[in-house]
Amino acid sequence: MQNSPYTSEELAWLIRRDCIEMTHKSHASHIGSDLSCADMLAVLYNEVLRIDSNNPDWSDRDYFLMGKGHASAALYSCLANVGFYSRARLETFYQDGSCMSGHVTKHGNPGIELSTGSLGHALGVGVGLAYAFQKDKRPNRVFVLMGDGECQEGSVYEAMSEAARDGLSNLVVLVDRNFQQGLGDSGDIMPSNAIEKRFLAFSWETHVIKGHDFRALRNSMSLEHKKPLCIVCDTIKGYPISFMMNQMLWHYRFPHEGNEYEGARRELLAYKPEELKNPYAEEDANL
């Protein structure tokens, strides 16, 4: 199954390139968070979710909830490239009068199921969806993407407990463990390996994978599971831009005109899948 005209590797590249453009033009934060989850989103949307971009309200669709709502640019780009709306809409990101807010909103944006931004809400809502689908024997599955910092919110544990108790085998959590958060390394605040230990302790089926490894991503997301499934994806904040990777600064900073914007684009070009037509070919020609 492939939901877009692209391979997942190509889709991930487009998401990254769009995010650099969107955050640069709008002076918006969170490029580091966008880049860390781009591969996860690409595989999920391209190969895993049962969705129909021509019919976003299809009753049997899978649901995706973006817990880390600050990575909105990545999700907006992903949905545009999968065909829920035109790529031109991405130019409205962060602009006055636009629907494309800096944190994910469903209003005015087809394909988005839940508005988020305050951390720790999506898993509980996902549990409610999965509970109702299981109860009514409906085929829909529910996927929730959370950040590792987000796993510090208490509400996450209320929802983890409930999911295990209800045996929600139609629920999958993807944790984008990029090891950084707003004010420091997440490992300084909560031991990094606490996430998988906690999900295991709450009786979830839990796996840890490399979050930029496409094979690992697709294999883990297609695992059969009888319990709720948690896939902890070890990622790199800012990946693969050398000066952004693992740098706290890039949680907030946008790629400024000059070395940052040009450098990010130049470095990303080196990763472009050969067959993919770069929609920014003209702008990137002189790099």
């Binding site: 996902g126 409610g128 009514d136 509400s155």
Partner: peptide, 11 residues
């Protein structure tokens, strides 16, 4: 409230 929201989204 979160769970109720999810269930409500499912009808």
């Amino acid at each position: 409230i979160e769970m109720a929201t999810g269930m409500a989204m499912a009808g």
